[in-house]
Design a protein around this nucleic acid. Structure first.
Length: 621
RNA sequence: UCCCCUGUAGCUCAAUGGUAGAGCGAGCGGCUGUUAACCGCUAGGUUGCUGGUUCGAGUCCAGCCGGGGGAGCCA
């Protein structure tokens, strides 16, 4: 028998939607929870398959089998998912879920249909915390008419991921911030309230009969925080299907001076909003960016986890000697006004906190390699710091980077990993954030969704660097003009990369095996002795999105390369140890997180894709 | 670090070397189950800072400060 721990079940359980006396059913469910495990026998004869969808169904207060529940149809709407193949009088609609359901497999959902008034689908396999007290707090009664659960705007309007099945007639409480207020002389005001839980705000209708209507509600302005209790109702107006008829509107916090509130309900330039970065998440664009950033972060961790990777926390403070190129931020506790000196006049780092010169990391790669050669499949995902005086839309002094590293793998394995990884996280994004991506398509970059869909469906072209140069040279011979000349041995300029991926191939490309002289010392030397096993993934519209390599796993060759690059072998003593003790071929790559977001959303500047950007001369907030 | 652009109302932008303007936002009023609402009225300015040229500088010049874009470098 397949047993399912309750704490492995269901994303959440917020309320019981049961009409009429249901003490018996509640008691049954409570017993299940108390037992800590959920055994199929307890709910009847239905079958439980690992990974199966439905293992139990609570209807009318009693646990009944769920004979056959089909898969969600393809044409599901945003706020409800229709199930086919439901038998035994259980045919109906499942509210909540939405498009995210297909991928994340929400297995625990409020449920009702024409014949039943409430219930839940239950199935294994989803992480989350089940909350038995949600049952306990509504013992055996008409839960919905007595409780006023506090819910997110997303749940009220059935946004992406909504799973509570809030609907017409439910009494609920929402808390958030006013986006706009519109008054009607018919004796009511419309409040657009957002709480960040999804892209769309919810419309709250406040009648003039409310006691604080004239004194407070009509004085609400953009940015005020409110606490609202009301009833969900079908909207009489256009633009939204559900709204909240308010019973009470409590003003939690006023806006000091509406005239000078930095983010009123109007258009703003991104440049201006960077100056008010503490308030910009209240705007459509930046709340969407924040949700997409979260979604992609989660998708990355989930993808690696599902593939058997382990997340390794590589150090942020690092001894500078072991890092690669790039300007670094010094980490020091020395008194800048009175720096200790050695006898020859140089700074005496021996008296610094770590007894040596230290900096903020520019890459976790070298450290993560040591874990790769123990755990086989690992990755880093954390902040990275570069002190380059570089002021462009693609650079930040502090950014986040993803660096997977796989053992017993060569460059081809690395390219395969990059391809399936990128496709996987973009697929999740499209599936889980249709509201925000729809906004980016409508207001930021018309082609962003189509671009991702093509990215997901097209296979990546593999191309040798030498062949890429040959193709570029043929293009030049055919009359194509490049600003930078093309010849074997150059590093590809962004104009070259764009031509290759956009015009020459028309799909993402993995360019492989670059000249050794333009690449780092740790990249594996090929048998031709003039190229290394490096790769760049180039994508239409963005250019280089990933840079990676198979690492040099032969100690003698590594030492030779360290020498050629003018580096000191002793500085890399522990990195060299990895080649002395059970060395294996391994490979990995680096992916800039904000650039990935830029590609996905069409946002032009990475400063608008991280909450508080750090750039030369700017570290406000 | 280099090149280019830019700094005027809360925001976005106008203004030939000659009285400081509009739209949005805000306030008030009108209309309206509204929703980028609409209509009317009102308030809102030491034109980034310092100096210079000129009878007169938002405008021209110099320096400084801030912002943006690009190059290089990268992710």
């Amino acid at each position: 028998m397949h047993r399912v721990r309750l704490d492995q079940l269901g994303r959440f359980l917020a309320r019981v939607r049961l009409h009429g006396p249901n003490a018996e059913g509640i008691e049954q469910v409570r017993k299940l929870f108390d037992g800590g495990t959920f055994t199929p026998a307890a709910v009847g004869q239905q079958q439980v398959q690992p990974g199966g969808l439905v293992v139990g169904l609570l209807v009318h207060g009693s646990i009944r089998p769920a004979p056959t529940i089909g898969k969600p149809c393809a044409d599901q709407g945003r706020s409800r998912t229709r199930f086919q193949g439901c038998g035994g009088g259980l045919r109906g609609e499942v509210r909540g879920g939405g498009t995210g359901m297909r991928r994340t497999g929400i297995h625990f959902l409020p449920y009702w249909h024409s014949g039943a008034t409430g219930g839940y689908l239950i199935a294994p396999g989803v992480r989350g915390i089940l909350r038995p007290h949600d049952f306990e707090c509504n013992p055996g009664a008409t839960a919905m008419t007595q409780a006023t659960p506090t819910v997110s705007v997303c749940e009220v309007i059935g946004g992406p991921g909504a799973s509570m099945g809030i609907g017409d007639g439910d009494r609920i409480r929402v808390r958030g911030w006013i986006r706009t207020r519109r008054d009607s002389k018919a004796g009511l005001s419309f409040l657009q309230v957002h709480d960040g839980s999804c892209f769309d705000p919810v419309q709250v209708v406040a009648q003039s009969t409310l006691p604080n209507y004239a004194e407070e509600i009509q004085r609400l302005t953009t940015g005020c925080s409110v606490d609202i209790v009301g009833t969900v109702a079908q909207s009489q107006g256009k633009g939204q299907s559900l709204e909240i008829q308010a019973e009470t509107v409590e003003v939690v916090g006023w806006v000091d001076d509406p005239e000078t509130y930095p983010v009123p309900a109007k258009r703003h330039t991104f440049e201006y909003l960077r100056d008010v970065a503490h308030l910009r998440p209240r705007t459509n664009t930046f709340s969407a960016v924040a949700r997409v950033r979260h979604c992609l972060s989660q998708a990355i961790h989930r993808w690696f986890h599902d593939q058997g990777f382990f997340w390794v926390h590589t150090p942020i403070i690092t001894g500078s000697d072991c890092e690669g190129a790039g300007e670094m931020f010094r980490v020091s506790t020395l008194d800048l006004a009175n720096v200790p000196r050695t006898e020859d006049g140089s700074v005496d780092f021996g008296r610094d906190f770590f007894g040596k010169e230290t900096n903020l990391t520019v890459s976790g790669q070298l450290n993560v390699e040591s874990y790769c050669l123990a755990l086989s499949k690992v990755y880093t995902f954390g902040p990275t710091f570069r002190a380059e005086n570089s002021n462009t839309s693609r650079h930040l002094a502090e950014f986040w980077m993803i660096e997977p590293e796989i053992a017993f793998a060569d460059l081809a394995d690395n390219a395969d990993l990059a391809e399936s990884f990128l496709k996987g996280i973009f697929e999740t994004l499209l599936s889980e954030r249709p509201d925000d991506m729809g906004f980016f398509r409508d207001r930021i970059d018309k082609g962003c969704i189509e671009r991702l869909e093509q990215f997901i469906s097209a296979s990546f072209e593999r191309m040798e660097y030498t062949d890429a140069i040959a193709a570029l040279e043929r293009a030049v011979a055919g009359g194509h003009k490049f600003e930078y000349p093309v010849s074997w041995g150059i590093d590809l300029q962004s104009e070259h990369e764009r031509w290759l991926t956009e015009e020459h191939v028309g799909r993402p490309i993995v360019v492989m095996n670059y000249p050794k002289d333009i690449k780092a010392f740790y990249m594996r030397l090929n048998d031709d002795e003039r190229t290394v096993a490096a790769m760049d993934v180039l994508a239409p519209g963005i250019g280089e999105i990933i840079g990676g390599a198979q690492r040099e796993d032969r100690l003698d060759v590594l030492d030779r390369r360290i020498g050629e690059m003018g580096l000191e072998a002793e500085d890399y003593w522990w990195y060299r140890d990895l080649r002395r003790y059970g060395t294996v071929p391994h490979a990995g790559f680096g992916l800039g997180f904000e650039r990935t977001m830029a590609y996905a959303t069409g946002m032009a500047n990475v400063r608008d894709l991280i909450p508080f950007p750090r750039t030369p001369n700017t570290a406000t907030f």
